[in-house]
Design a protein around this nucleic acid. Structure first.
Lengths: 139, 139
DNA sequence: TTGAAAATGGAGTTCATTATCATTTAGCTA
DNA sequence: TAGCTAAATGATAATGAACTCCATTTTCAA
């Protein structure tokens, strides 16, 4: 997945730097929805001199090239999802304990595509978030 | 719909003020996704002495009681959706011209409920946003 | 190797959201 | 209906995430 990022950089005529590599690598290793601050902390553990701005810009780059996706879960922080590792998935979010469960349903995806087509839209990506009470909080 | 808000206030032991009435009324009349600033402007046209804080708190109240819903479309502004007037709907968003089309598909809703049930979740509300290119921008 | 263009990083700016607090108001009670 | 008390208001300040700036450093093609 870092290799893919490498290719993207090359194809866009952007420079391949140690920082970009390390940020991307750290992000791709993360399997949760990290915020910028969290990612910065992780990155700084090994390379303390990397700045916020570089992490910010690298994540923007990853988002633009489709390797990451910005998400808002309502806690005021933009979180990033690793699209490459896990493939696409949707979210069940508990509004009591904030637990996030990921799921995937092909039938829903198909219906979405069909609906969009009826409106003349060509869908590139989507977000589906179900908010409610999880099994533990619903008793 | 203002009557429903009235009932909510009563049941919560909150006071029924002119400001709350007028803000709710203005919001329920609006059929787009208004931001706080936009709503404040609308409200100030008729009652210029209403403050930002009151609009903010009233919308928070409407959100908590399920009459409104916060939404993030990626423009950095929280927008509010009128749940009462239009009923629930989902969104098709053009990533080129920012056009937003609303739609509703009962089959998708049913599948969502079913999926959630499989995970032991009881869904209260959801967001479904399809991002892509609209008919005009896809040619 | 070198120089021009791009990238970095620390700090600063912007702007939406939330908190503060003195003043006003709603609505219960006598 | 006048008075009282707690809640609500509204102007402004504080907060914090998102984004920018610019002096310095680094990449990489010639």
């Amino acid at each position: 997945m870092v290799e893919e990022f490498q290719k993207v950089l090359e194809s866009k005529g952007l420079k391949s730097t140690q920082q970009r590599h390390f940020i991307a690598e750290t992000f791709f290793k993360t399997n949760t929805h990290v915020s910028l601050d969290e990612l910065l902390k992780k990155v700084k553990r090994k390379t303390p001199n990397i700045g916020y701005a570089t992490v910010f810009r690298t994540m923007k780059l990853l988002t633009e090239t489709g390797l990451a996706m910005e998400r808002q879960f309502g806690d005021g922080q933009t979180r990033f999802e690793n699209l490459h590792q896990d493939g696409h998935h949707d979210h069940l979010i508990c509004i009591k304990c904030a637990k996030i469960v990921e799921f995937q349903n092909q039938m829903i995806e198909d219906l979405q595509a069909e609906t969009a087509k009826n409106f003349g839209f060509k869908v590139v990506r989507h977000k589906l978030e179900l908010y409610g009470y999880c099994a533990d909080c619903n008793s």
